[in-house]
Amino acid sequence: MTDSILKIQAVRKTYVSVRTGDTIEALAGIDLEVPAGEFLAVVGPSGCGKSTLLSLVAGFTQPSAGEVLYRGQRVTGAGPERGVMFQDYALFPWRTVLGNIEFGPLARGVALTQRHARARELIRLVGLDGFENRYPHELSGGMRQRCALARMLANDPEIWLMDEPLAAVDQQTRTILQDELLRLWGDAARRPGAPTVIFVTHAIDEAVLLADRVVVLARRPGRIKAVIDIPLPRPRPAQRGSPQFAALVAQVWDLIRDEAAKAIVEEIDR
């Protein structure tokens, strides 16, 4: 893998709890390389450090030890080449759909006509026509998520960092958005320079459906338990319900089951 866009080397992350003063080890010794153009899914039970891993790549936090290298450069902060889609949308409530989508280009100094043209194109692409001037509180969960996706895409990021982006929408919307996400990424026909995706999710079937590889994290401390190749043919939507798909889901679930059970017991204890 000479063309790795992202290298995570011996990364540890510890937090000190403000309330108890205890040190919490969120991630312990993560090593991971992501080749350019790959769709990588990260799954694991709650508390395994999935979101922390994404924050480190985004540059929101710094590792306690080890290095995150993006295109060979150490990550020290956030940047527009690494787009982020947040679990809770994180739309600016005082900006309309259009205002949210053009925030990135506006911040980077793109001229008005250009960024409006791009924003309108994206609004069409994610199916928000007619909602340009609505505020986030006037949108449904699925529409907010589309808006967040378009906002991320407006910067044409090289890598998409997605933190459980479909966790908060209903099952039907979720299925539709999965298909749209695959289409936007280039599921059917991969073009050179296609974006790299790191997709954090707790839904195993979603991870298997979307990804080239699935990283399974274990918890307490967060570490990589397994990396599973997903050799399913693309385009993927057709693979839903295939025996091979079901077998892969079962394989990942076997790896997670014990961890998930432990997580539930701990939740109850607390």
């Binding site: 527009p80 787009g83 947040f86 900006r95 990135g104 506006l106």
Partner: peptide, 27 residues
């Protein structure tokens, strides 16, 4: 102010001053 919004602005390429005028003040 929601820290998530500050992170979102940073990852969209906003500078410190831009964040003050476009996120902190309206927020």
């Amino acid at each position: 102010l929601d820290r998530l919004l500050l992170n979102a602005a940073r990852s969209l390429g906003a500078s410190g001053n831009f964040i003050v005028t476009h996120v902190v003040i309206p927020g």
